[in-house]
Design a protein around this nucleic acid. Structure first.
Lengths: 234, 234
DNA sequence: GCAATAGTGTCTTTCAGACACTATATC
DNA sequence: GATATAGTGTCTGAAAGACACTATTGC
């Protein structure tokens, strides 16, 4: 066996896949890309790419965010590394999954400029932090078939989001700089998949000290406008 | 540039490192291996090895547990993937870190048969789930220098342990099949790095419904023996 | 009986859930 | 003034912390 064949055989390929999520009309959503080529042509996949030997994992995830998802400025965090032998029919590909969060307004340019991208609704059939796979739905509620093991990756991203919501600042990454407490509560409810008690939510968040009232109010509501808050600098 | 050189240059190497932890005399401990060769010769490292192209990541971690740590039957869970460019002076090595848990009694054979293995005390200088690196100490309290970025990996393992303690069954993985509530509380205190209120701890754990009283009692205490519990099957 | 820990009773505080109420903007 | 939501006051119940107390074993 030549050294080249040994080397080829010896190392798995390393990729990164990006679970870029948002909240749209009170529901969790994820950016998907329709696959044009085999394998899994026609199915929907998370934006991803191979990790270059000269770039760190975090840099590869940022590159996928910019080049494949066509966006920037997201909260990005490593999720999990998927390394089963059969997860990619092309060969041994280990993927380091990242999740990223952006407010819905930021998706407009990417969606109009790239017709193979879609922001799909995310649904899970488990409660709390049980865990499991997730489904992606289009605007009419029809299920979009997911490529490879991306239903598992998406499900794990939802589980992680739910787990981190209480003690981290991820909810703010899904909102513009100024937001109302109603919008913040809707983000929490979309992530958790349940409805929350309004007074308790307000007490907990305001007492938590991570919010800053601006004195300004939202506009164009048709009813009493709510005060705008911003995230207090950590 | 030949195709071989391109292939060699193109793929990072993939390894796995194992944070095999336990609780000894009320303190967190981790299994370390003294490095015999450069780089980092003489420093202490987590047991690890390269991932074969024909084995899954989980299988590679189990293999390291058996071959390098010389143990079996541990709770094993993926921790995080470290992929900075400079983390290994030999070249581009991505490592998928796992943490594993075993009761202290299980470490005896490995420690006596392999003189390069040591069960070192773990200390962190941060509270709660702040996060940060960790230190390893020998029996006399002297710091053991850690190789590569293993102080960061160890610190992340402690953070993850603290985060999962409340809602998972990891504490039971650090105890024999039968244990007293005092021993269970000592495990919790060792992981969290603080002391807990006894009545509140007992109430919470017993009401939690994951424990089963056996009616049997510990032996050889010299004082009133406590009842032995076991983990209730999930 | 003494020592040492097991195990419990109870008071207080904290906080979430529930519900109803008042306040204030647009129309 | 009608309407819709913002925002608050207050009651209740669950659970943690604190503390003291009783119980039980070996010696």
């Amino acid at each position: 066996m030549s050294r080249r064949a040994f080397q080829d055989y010896d190392k798995p390929s390393v990729a990164t896949d990006l679970v870029l999520m948002s909240v749209r009309t009170g529901r969790l959503a994820v950016l998907l890309q329709k696959r044009a080529h085999e394998p899994e042509a026609g199915k929907w996949a998370l934006p991803g790419g191979f990790v270059d030997v000269g770039e760190s994992l975090d840099a590869a995830a940022e590159r996928v965010l910019a080049e494949k998802a066509r966006m920037a400025g997201a909260w990005v965090e490593q999720l999990y590394t998927f390394g089963d032998l059969q997860r990619d029919p092309r060969g041994r590909v280990i993927t380091v999954a990242y999740f990223a969060l952006l407010p819905e307004e930021k998706f407009g340019p990417a969606l109009t400029s790239a017709p193979d991208l879609a922001l799909a609704e995310v649904q899970v059939d488990w409660a709390g932090e049980t865990g499991g796979s997730a489904r992606a739905l289009d605007e009419e509620g029809l299920e979009l078939p997911l490529a490879f093991d991306h239903a598992d990756i998406l499900g794990l991203a939802v589980k992680r989001l739910r787990g981190k919501l209480d003690y981290s600042d991820i909810a703010f990454a899904l909102l513009p700089e100024l937001f109302t407490l109603r919008e913040l509560q809707q983000v929490h409810e979309a992530i958790l998949g349940l409805s929350l008690n309004k007074p308790a939510f307000r007490r907990r968040l305001i007492d938590g000290g991570r919010l800053e009232a601006t004195g300004r109010r939202e506009a164009g509501t048709g009813f009493r406008p709510a005060e705008l808050y911003r995230r207090k600098a950590p």
